[in-house]
Amino acid sequence: MWQSNPNPWSSSEPAKWSHYSDVENLITERAYMNGEKRAIFDHYYIDFETNRQISNTDNYRQRPVKRVVRKREDKHLREERFVDLPVTTGRSFGGEYGWVSPFIIEVRRDLKLEPDELPSKKPDIIPILVEKAAEGIIKEGKHIGKEQEAKELANMLREQKDNGIEQVWKRCAYIYSLESFLYKTLNTTMRLVGDKDHEHVWRSKVRTLGPFCLLLWDDPFNKKAKTNKTLYRGANLNGENRSSLSCSYQKLFEK
Rank of each mutant, 00 (worst) to 15 (best):
L118P: 04
S11D: 13
T227N: 14
T227Y: 15
D195K: 07
E80T: 09
A173C: 10
A31T: 07
I54T: 13
V130P: 00
V83T: 15
F212D: 01
F212P: 00
Y32W: 06
T89Y: 00
P6C: 14
R207W: 06
H198R: 09
E73S: 09
R30L: 04
P211A: 08
P119W: 11
K112Y: 04
C247R: 11
I126W: 01
T185L: 12
K37L: 01
K146S: 06
I125E: 09
L192D: 05
E79K: 02
G239F: 03
G95N: 09
S180N: 08
N51P: 04
S11I: 14
T28G: 05
R72G: 00
G90N: 10
P6W: 12
Y174D: 05
V107W: 01
D218H: 07
Y20M: 10
W217K: 07
R81T: 03
L178K: 02
V65D: 04
P86A: 12
R38F: 15
E49A: 15
K122Y: 03
L153M: 12
K184L: 13
N241Q: 12
S248D: 09
F212K: 01
S244W: 06
K205R: 15
G194L: 12
L26D: 13
P14R: 13
N228A: 08
V130K: 01
D219M: 03
T230C: 06
Y232N: 13
K184S: 12
E49L: 08
W202H: 06
V193Y: 01
R242D: 07
S243P: 04
F48W: 12
D74K: 00
E114M: 07
Q3N: 12
T50F: 13
W2F: 07
E254P: 02
P211M: 06
D74H: 02
S204E: 14
K37H: 03
D110G: 02
F253A: 07
D110A: 09
E106F: 10
I54E: 11
T230I: 12
E166P: 00
T230W: 05
D47L: 11
E135L: 07
G141E: 01
S55P: 00
I105C: 06
T189L: 07
P86W: 14
I175K: 02
D162Y: 14
R233L: 09
Q167P: 00
E199S: 13
E152H: 14
E96W: 13
N7F: 05
Y183G: 13
T227D: 15
N238R: 02
E149H: 04
K184Q: 14
R38P: 00
F41R: 03
L214C: 08
V69W: 00
L118R: 13
M190P: 03
R242K: 15
F181E: 14
W17G: 07
F93E: 13
W17H: 04
H143W: 11
P86Y: 15
N5H: 11
T50A: 08
K205M: 12
Q167M: 03
L237N: 09
T227C: 08
T89K: 07
R78K: 08
S55F: 10
E199M: 12
L237S: 07
M156T: 05
S12C: 10
K75Y: 02
K226N: 12
E96I: 14
V206C: 07
R38T: 06
